[in-house]
Simulated scan of single mutants.
Amino acid sequence: MRSELGLGDDVVVDVEGASLAEGTDDEFSDAVRALVAQRQQHDDAEAVERFRAELDRDGLAVEGGLVSVTDALCQANVDTLFVDAGVLVGQLVWTSGQPEQVSVEEADVRQLATGSAEVRRNRADEALARAAAVTGAYVVGDGLTLLQGVGALLRHRPDNTPLGEPASRRPSQRRFSRIRSCPPPRRRGSRGTTCT
Rank of each mutant, 00 (worst) to 15 (best):
D56G: 15
Q75S: 11
L66S: 03
Q91P: 03
E49F: 11
A76M: 07
V83T: 06
G90K: 11
V89C: 09
E46D: 15
D58G: 15
L88C: 06
G65P: 02
D44E: 13
D43V: 12
G65F: 03
G86T: 05
V83M: 10
A47D: 14
A76W: 00
V87C: 02
Q91C: 05
G59R: 04
L55P: 04
A76F: 01
E49H: 11
E46H: 15
V89I: 11
G90H: 08
Q91W: 05
D84T: 10
V89Q: 15
R57P: 01
L81E: 07
G65E: 02
L73Y: 02
A53E: 15
A85K: 07
A45M: 10
Q91E: 12
V62E: 10
Q91H: 13
E54M: 12
V48C: 12
D84R: 09
V89W: 07
E46A: 15
A72H: 01
D56S: 14
S68P: 03
L66I: 11
R50V: 09
L88N: 09
G86C: 06
D43S: 13
T70C: 01
L66C: 09
A47K: 07
T80W: 09
D44W: 12
L55Q: 14
D58T: 09
Q75W: 04
N77K: 02
Q75L: 11
G65N: 05
V69G: 00
T70K: 00
T80S: 14
A47L: 12
F51A: 10
S68W: 05
A76I: 03
V89S: 12
V89G: 12
A85N: 09
V69T: 04
R52M: 10
G65W: 01
L88S: 09
A61T: 08
G86H: 03
A72Y: 00
L88Y: 04
G90P: 09
D44N: 14
A45T: 14
Q91G: 08
A72D: 06
D44M: 10
V87Y: 02
L55K: 14
V69S: 00
G59Q: 05
A53S: 12
R50H: 13
V89D: 13
Q75K: 10
T70Q: 01
E49M: 10
V62H: 08
L60D: 07
G64Y: 01
D71P: 00
V69C: 01
L73E: 04
E46N: 12
E46G: 13
C74P: 02
A53M: 10
D58E: 14
A45P: 07
L55C: 15
F82H: 03
A85R: 12
L66D: 00
D56Y: 08
D43I: 10
R52A: 11
L66V: 06
V48R: 14
V78M: 06
Q75R: 15
R52S: 08
V87G: 05
A61D: 05
R50G: 11
R50Y: 06
R57A: 07
D71K: 01
D71N: 13
F51W: 14
L66Y: 00
L73F: 04
D43P: 08
D79H: 10
A47I: 09
D58R: 13
E63V: 06
F82L: 08
G59P: 05
